[in-house]
């Protein structure tokens, strides 16, 4: 059997159970393929459980396990860097009919994915706040590579916090608590999840979209939380959120 056929067949076997390469294995050892099947299955599921602990808690162990089983087949890992595996998990949850009534789950998955990737993101080159505030108004910036801006009709930051295994208290979050806009950012002290007012979110999106600070601030002035924009932007500079424009 050519090496390419053997490898294709082995991956089919491991990820979808649809083919087997038993013919290539010496008869006395065919059953030992189970060791690899088990390693890969357990390894990938425990990785997904590490990346998506809140999703797992929200849907329950049994559901999570069987969903992961499908996911491994429909979306196998593409990279030898396992930490990059899981990006389509949220979309796969969103299109899974059994979860139609729990639409918040895929938004929590989006937050967990952003939180995971922020840890591994590259460092940007931080933008220093200009001494003369007038210079800031014409300044362009990019957002730190770890940044994700996430919006949901549900309070997913609280759902996430209270579903994580390290949460000690009661589960008090209610879906009626309403929408949330979140900033995920890796700072010096670690990955943070911060809630944003509509004005702050709009301003960050405008800067990300290429507007200079002046027009970006201007475009957010009519939105809720606009009066807090100045301290918010200074807080962002302190956290090195803004980087040199690309």
């Amino acid at each position: 059997m050519p090496l390419s056929d053997y490898q294709e067949g082995f991956l089919d076997d491991l990820l979808s159970g649809t083919s087997s390469i038993e013919d290539a294995i010496a008869p006395a050892f065919k059953h030992r393929l189970n060791i690899y099947r088990n390693n890969v299955n357990v390894g990938l599921k425990s990785y997904l459980a590490d990346v998506f602990p809140a999703v797992k808690a929200l849907v329950g162990d049994a559901f999570f396990n069987s969903f992961c089983q499908r996911f491994l087949t429909s979306h196998p890992p593409h990279s030898g860097d396992l930490h990059r595996y899981g990006e389509p998990f949220a979309d796969a949850l969103a299109s899974f009919p059994a979860l139609a009534e729990q639409a918040f789950v895929d938004d929590v998955a989006r937050l967990e994915w952003a939180y995971h990737r922020a840890y591994y993101a590259p460092d940007g080159t931080p933008l220093v706040m200009p001494d003369d505030p007038n210079h800031l108004l014409t300044q362009h910036a990019s957002l730190h590579p770890s940044v994700a801006l996430i919006q949901s009709p549900y309070p997913i930051d609280e759902l996430w916090r209270q579903s994580r295994p390290d949460h000690k208290g009661e589960f008090t979050v209610r879906l009626e608590d309403g929408a949330s806009s979140l900033l995920v950012l890796r700072t010096i002290s670690g990955v943070t999840v911060q809630r944003l007012e509509p004005a702050a979110l709009h301003c960050l999106r405008s800067i990300e979209g290429g507007l200079a600070f002046g027009p970006a601030i201007e475009s957010a002035m009519a939105l809720e939380g606009a009066e807090q924009l100045t301290p918010f932007l200074s807080h962002c500079f302190n956290q090195r959120l803004f980087c040199q424009p690309e």
Partner: peptide, 11 residues
């Protein structure tokens, strides 16, 4: 890994 698929094991 081979082509577009990769698994976390040494095969």
């Amino acid at each position: 890994g081979y082509r577009h698929r990769h698994v976390p094991d040494l095969l």
